[in-house]
């Protein structure tokens, strides 16, 4: 077995150079190898999310539209067509008011603005409380389906029941929904 290398200045610099160089080349290679699969996986995930909130379409056109309430942010409108007919739009919307920060939703609207379905893309709400907004955890988000126009909690004069013990999460969810609806209303002609 070779003896341990001495900690001379040259040895230290050269070793670190070799280690970091090897690491850099390896990571670069792995990145190139996985770039396409990662892109594909992301696209699939997005398509799946759109399919979950819109029923029947055969073509999607995505565009960025300035968000209502917040001029600096864009919402992604995935406009769905069947043949040449406009059959709905899946909007990627968000709110920063969640209990754990940002919540991202995909909300499907039919051409007249009625909510078709909503799915949660990303959230950091408390497990067991706020995470009931996920379809896999409870059917809380189903009550939005079929509603038209802006929504609000019952205690604020609306029709939506809050998640028990998670009013902040419920309000944040509603904020994201209203953001999408408001933006849709403002841009109706442009779609």
């Amino acid at each position: 077995m070779a003896a341990k290398k001495e900690s001379s200045f040259f040895n230290m610099v050269s070793t670190l150079l070799i280690v970091t160089l090897t690491a850099g080349i390896t990571l670069g290679a792995v990145f190139i190898l996985t770039e396409d699969p990662i892109e594909k996986a992301k696209k699939q995930k997005q398509e799946k999310a759109i399919k979950a909130v819109l029923d029947d379409f055969d073509r999607i056109e995505s565009k960025n539209i300035k968000s209502a309430y917040d001029e600096n942010q864009d919402l992604v409108f995935n406009v769905a067509y069947k043949g040449d007919q406009f059959v709905g739009v899946a909007i990627e919307t968000f709110t920063n008011n969640g209990f754990g920060g940002t919540i991202k939703l995909m909300i499907g609207l039919s051409p007249d603005g009625t909510i078709n379905n909503i799915s949660v893309l990303e959230h950091k709400e408390t497990p067991g409380l706020g995470d009931k907004m996920e379809k896999s955890k409870s059917d809380w988000s189903e009550q939005f389906n079929g509603k038209k126009g802006k929504v609000a909690l019952k205690k604020n004069g609306g029709e939506i029941d809050a998640i028990t013990a998670a009013t902040i999460s419920s309000n944040a969810f509603i904020d994201a929904v209203n953001r999408a609806i408001e933006t849709f209303e403002q841009n109706k002609g442009g779609i």
């Binding site: 070779a2 290398k5 001495e6 900690s7 230290m12 070793t15 670190l16 280690v19 690491a23």
Partner: peptide, 19 residues
């Protein structure tokens, strides 16, 4: 391990692990 001088072993290990 034998190719890495003692004084820089920690940074070298960290780079390997992070990779």
């Amino acid at each position: 391990k034998n190719a890495i001088p003692d004084k820089v072993r920690i940074p070298a290990f960290v780079v390997i692990i992070a990779s």
